[in-house]
């Protein structure tokens, strides 16, 4: 279990994350949603162990983060940040292999090939990373992160994703979420920051809504993703449409109706 209890984080007098309490169980996909500046990324860094807050704690499988060495922590959780910038000419394959750099395995090549095939990155494995498009880079980074937790282990593990699909086209987005969903059967719990509410609605088991550092609502997807709750968090009218045939929900941000409502001083 990934467990955050009373996480609190301030920068100066401003609280970025306020008393956050939640759990991510192995085998479930939790989506973390919220408007810009809600504190998602800070919360994400607290969970990954990159930042240790003064108040509250994060536990992986019952052990608080500070009691892990960075090597031990990397065995129970993998992290994919929003974007990574490289200054050196590494090939796509070399980047993917780095996910295994601290892992002892005899099947390194097999794992790398399998993951690259899964993420559709094998076809450009020898191309230089900095020549790839945004979406391709993201898939290479996803492949790197997956190698770290690919081989089955007898204990529960966790995957943290920060907007893993932000530069991808629709087909790629769906493909990536499908891959992530399959991981659940490997005793892996996933927490993903998502921008696209519909992706969250279609794939997440549970949803957390964050606003101004507060976890306003959390629970099963269909309970949390209601128009009242989403409107409260995103400050915009949002329509939630239930598709009875497929049994899932669709999120529709209602566009502004009247034109010429904005008044400018200069134009």
């Amino acid at each position: 279990m990934l467990e955050a209890s009373h996480l609190h984080y301030c920068i100066g007098p401003r609280s970025i994350v306020k008393q956050a309490c939640f759990r991510v169980k192995p085998g479930e996909l939790v989506a973390l949603l919220g408007p810009n500046g809600a504190g998602k990324s800070t919360l994400f860094r607290l969970l990954s162990g990159e930042v240790i807050g003064k108040q509250g704690e994060v536990c992986y499988n019952g052990k608080p983060i500070p009691s892990f060495s960075s090597a031990a922590l990397s065995k129970v959780r993998a992290v994919m940040p929003q974007s990574s910038h490289l200054n050196f000419p590494f090939s796509a394959r070399e980047i993917v292999e780095m996910g295994l750099s601290m892992v002892q395995t005899r099947r390194k090549d097999l794992v790398v090939e399998e993951v690259m095939e899964l993420t559709h990155t094998l076809e450009y494995k020898n191309r230089m990373y900095h020549h790839l498009s945004g979406g391709e880079k993201q898939r290479v980074q996803l492949a790197r992160v997956l190698t770290q937790i690919w081989e089955k282990q007898p204990y529960a593990r966790y995957l943290l994703l920060d907007e893993p699909t932000s530069s991808m086209d629709i087909a790629q987005q769906q493909h990536v979420l499908k891959i992530v969903r399959e991981l659940k059967s490997r005793n892996i719990g996933i927490l993903a920051i998502l921008h696209d509410l519909n992706l969250a609605a279609s794939y997440a088991d549970r949803v957390m809504l964050l606003k101004n550092g507060d976890v306003r609502h959390q629970g099963p997807t269909h309970e949390v993703m209601t128009s009242a709750k989403l409107e409260e968090v995103f400050d915009h009218p949002i329509q939630v449409i239930k598709d009875k045939e497929r049994g899932n929900i669709m999120i529709h941000p209602v566009p502004h109706q009247k034109e010429n409502q904005l008044h400018y001083h200069t134009a």
Partner: peptide, 13 residues
């Protein structure tokens, strides 16, 4: 080379 945070995530001290 990927980044300091990424290196930490991978398990590097």
């Amino acid at each position: 080379a990927i980044g300091e945070s990424e290196a930490f995530h991978i398990g590097v001290s």
